[in-house]
Structure formats: C-alpha cells, structure tokens
Design a protein around this nucleic acid. Structure first.
Length: 218
DNA sequence: TACCAGGAGAAAA
DNA sequence: TTTTCTCATGGT
C-alpha cells in the first residue's frame, strides 16, 4: 500500500534540498535541447549525453531539420559516446519528424497538457518518463517525473509498496503535492541526485543516507 | 572485472 | 497480458 501523503513528501523534499541544494535542472539552453537531451539520456549517464551533444553541435545546429539532414549512420556516429547510438539515432530522427509535422515548438505549446502527453507517447522512442521529462522541463507543465530512483527511494522509506506502477506513482505525487512546477522540477532533480549518490542497488540500504535519521517513515 | 546509468521497444512466454 | 531480452559507451 502506498502512503504518499503531502506532509511526508514535503519533509523528504526539505531534507534532500538541505543536503544537496538546488540542482538547476534541466541542463539545456532551449526547449528543443531539453527534448533532445531527454531522449539521449535514457538509461544513460548525463556526462555521456554531453559528449554526444557536443559532437553533434560541432557538425550541425541543434535543430530538427538539421538533424534530419544528417544521414542516419552519420547521426549515429555523432551519438556514439551516448551509448545505444543506433537506437537513439532512430529515436531522435523519429522525434524530429514528428516535431516538424506538429508545427514545431509553437504547435506543441498550443496543446493542452494531456493532449501533449498523448502526442509525445505516440512518438517512437518516447515512453512515460521521457514524455514527462519533456512536459516538465521543456514545457513547464505540472507533471511529476517518476524514474527508477523514485520507486527505489520511496519504497525504502516505506512510502511505496507492491510495485504500484508508473502512472499510480505519478498520480500519487501530483495529488499530494499539487500542480507545482518549480517543486516538481527541483524534487525530481533531487531524487536523481540522491539516487546517484547513495542508493545504487549494490550499495547498503542508504547507509549514509541523509534521510535516515529523519526518515519520515519513522 | 563487474556493475550501473536521468528507458523504451521488440520478442518471447 | 506480463516478463524477458536487447541496445552500448563511459565512469566507478
């Protein structure tokens, strides 16, 4: 049973913010760069994404038409440091085609949040987490991003149980916290920061975890 | 050396 | 419908 109540979630947020400080996400100069980064960072460390973006931007401007103008194999070669470069080359091209067909940034901005989310999920290579990354960090829509760290950390805190699934967890956070874009932005970034630092599967259960002494789960 | 990373889609059961 | 497999470079 899940117990994602507002008070406990805010307590965890305050602890994380006190421990790590503001994370200033997303690291991208434009909404389009955020969207590209969201696709490239799937199951990949951000440092690898930065290398790939740098190689890509050395060749072309970071624009949908320019990306599509690159032959698929050359795009993949640019993306080699990212990992999964053949897969991500196809996904990025699919996104760029859909993006242009939808009328670019203005066309997508005109869509209501749920409509935009459905549009994103229809694009090859964009699943729930990537769609929500894009909604929150590129379009500033009040959508909470759930990732593997979220499930891992809040299960350990006793606030999630029984593998409730992506949508249920997302709904739980959004219901408890309200539609607060700055809070969602910082909270997800802090979860990732904490997860990277202390909560890998192979490490002891939050041995030095900043949440341990003040664990909202008691 | 082995494990993991800011997942998603295809294939198999 | 649910579970398992595949994609891949770079850091720890």
């Amino acid at each position: 049973m899940s117990v994602l109540d507002a008070e406990r979630l805010h307590t965890v947020y305050r602890l994380l913010l006190a421990e790590y400080g503001p994370q200033h996400w997303w690291p991208g100069d434009s909404p389009f760069e955020v969207m590209v980064g969201a696709i490239l960072t799937q199951n990949t460390a951000w440092t690898n994404v930065e290398r790939g973006l740098e190689r890509l931007c050395d060749r072309i401007p970071l624009q949908a038409r320019a990306i599509l103008s690159l032959p698929a194999d050359e795009l993949a070669e640019c993306l080699r440091p990212v990992g999964y470069f053949n897969v991500k080359s196809k996904r990025l091209r699919a996104f760029c085609r859909a993006y242009l067909e939808a009328g670019g940034l203005d066309g997508l901005r005109a869509l209501e949040t749920e409509e935009l989310r459905r549009w994103l999920l229809r694009v090859h290579g964009i699943g729930p987490e990537t769609a929500d990354d894009i909604l929150l960090y590129a379009f500033e829509r009040p959508v909470f991003v759930v990732d593997a760290y979220t499930g891992r950390i809040f299960e350990r805190l006793g606030m999630l149980a029984g593998n409730p699934g992506y949508e249920a967890i997302r709904h739980g956070f959004e219901t408890a916290l309200g539609r607060d874009v700055p809070l969602f932005n910082e909270y997800h970034a802090l979860i990732v920061r904490h997860g990277k630092t202390l909560c890998r599967r192979t490490r002891p259960l939050c041995a030095r975890c900043c949440l341990r002494e003040s664990c909202p789960a008691g």
